[in-house]
Nucleic acid binder design. Structure first.
Lengths: 251, 251
DNA sequence: GTGCGGCCTCACGCTACGTGAGGGTCAAGG
DNA sequence: CCTTGACCCTCACGTAGCGTGAGGCCGCAC
């Protein structure tokens, strides 16, 4: 006897993340007919149905219409690469448009309000201290005329409180991971530490400014030479510095 | 007397790119009521209406519901930058989501081994040679196990013929620009040459693989050391090499 | 035997319009 | 002056992909 292989709508719904109504709908339109029914009329789905559902959801994510999904799934391959390519093009165009909107929006917002992104109490709430502004003034003194700083200002001006919470969370995770790596005796130039360094670089790129490997190296130098950074990074600064260099060297 | 300032639906439709029905709809739900009517009952829109429509379309592009757009526009900017932030956040989410979709789509396409993206005739038509295959195999031998190679394979698997035409056009433009810069006596480490090098880097990043400045430097080294590249770039290889290094150094 | 949660089948609601049907209106040409 | 064709009007139903009850059967625990 094969594994259970008999699921009711609710079960399938919970497993796949869609609603029961959606399954009813897909049954109705024949996109995903239930393989069978129980004596009392309950829809019963098999593992094969689940697999089909997975494929359906994949194409749905790509914003194909249900009808087109049906066609794609019906005939095994055939000329469907065209669909995929078209979809790919569409998505790339959308990506470009979105990027344009983003840029316009950021400029608009920067113009609208220079500086003050959060009220002092909100900053307090997030960072547990209100050193952020102080930190900012220091930073501006030193970096005010670099492109990275300007880009950082442009981007951070647009962040909401939720964004800051996430930034903080990511940063903390990264610091903790480094601490754990030291604990575990991972070498600073080993694969684990390098991966963490890469995370760190991407964190900066994502939230503050385009941070290539060269930039990252420069930043690493600061971690050991600038007391402000050393304060944030505590005893692990040296280790992080080493890891960043090792990571950058490998690219 | 001010400029015309009296447009009928069809005119507005053509100017804004929406359908007349859409304008009817916006009128019906009160989102964009026509400022007036002609004697015969034609809707008449003013320049102010057009401005409002532009704003509506902007928010619509950001996937706000019409009802919410109405609320945003009605309220004379109370929490104005608040919803700007929300838009910004939404856009970034969409950006990330679309990037994910693109990635998934590319993997799917690569997995289906649609590697034969262009027929030999098309290859010849675009690149003026059908020896791409050999070239490709050589490259794979040498670079096959690098991340950049894999990323490039994944991404290019999804390109259409039109994409390739554009890629080729961009590349040619870049090469010609370099040639022109040499002709004009531009120094290889001057601003013009560096800008061209930056274009070149972005071209690669956009179409093939993430090419940071370090990576770009490595690539530059090949241009002067690897005969295959030297062939493509002819006599300007040395100059390009120099420009890339200069550009990377400034970042 | 009686809850309670899960399942069933209608069936109407929703968004943002598309798409006619049936009928006036405006400017140019015959 | 009258016709023609492009444009405009107001209903009003259709579409996709479900959401959201309503009314009722099923099954298992207490």
């Amino acid at each position: 006897m094969p594994p259970v292989d008999e699921y009711t709508v609710g079960t399938v719904a919970r497993m796949s993340g869609v609603s029961a109504r959606t399954l009813h709908h897909y049954d109705e339109i024949g996109l995903l007919p239930a393989s069978g029914r129980s004596e009392s009329g309950y829809r019963l789905y098999t593992d094969a149905d689940l697999e089909r559902l997975r494929r359906i959801l994949f194409y749905r994510e790509l914003e194909f219409g249900l009808e087109e999904i049906a066609r794609i799934l019906e005939d095994p391959e055939a000329g469907d690469d065209d669909h995929l390519r078209r979809q790919h093009r569409m998505l790339r165009e959308r990506q470009a448009r979105t990027a344009g909107l983003l840029h316009a929006l950021e400029q608009e917002m920067e113009a609208r309000q220079m500086g003050i992104k959060l009220t002092p109490e909100e900053q307090f709430e997030i960072f547990g201290t209100d050193k952020l502004e102080e930190h900012q003034q220091e930073a501006e003194q030193r970096w005010g005329d670099t492109d990275a700083w300007k880009e950082s200002q442009r981007r951070t001006a647009a962040y909401t409180k939720d964004d800051w919470v996430q930034i903080k969370a990511e940063a903390d995770t990264n610091i903790e991971a480094f601490a754990a790596a030291i604990e575990a005796g991972e070498p600073a130039d080993g694969p684990v530490a390098r991966a963490l360094a890469e995370d760190h670089r991407q964190h900066i790129s994502r939230w503050f400014y385009e941070c290539g490997y060269d930039m990252h190296r420069n930043l690493a130098a600061l971690y050991v030479s600038d007391p402000r950074f050393t304060k944030t990074w505590g005893g692990i600064a040296q280790y992080v510095h080493h890891a960043i260099l090792a990571n950058a060297a490998g690219r």
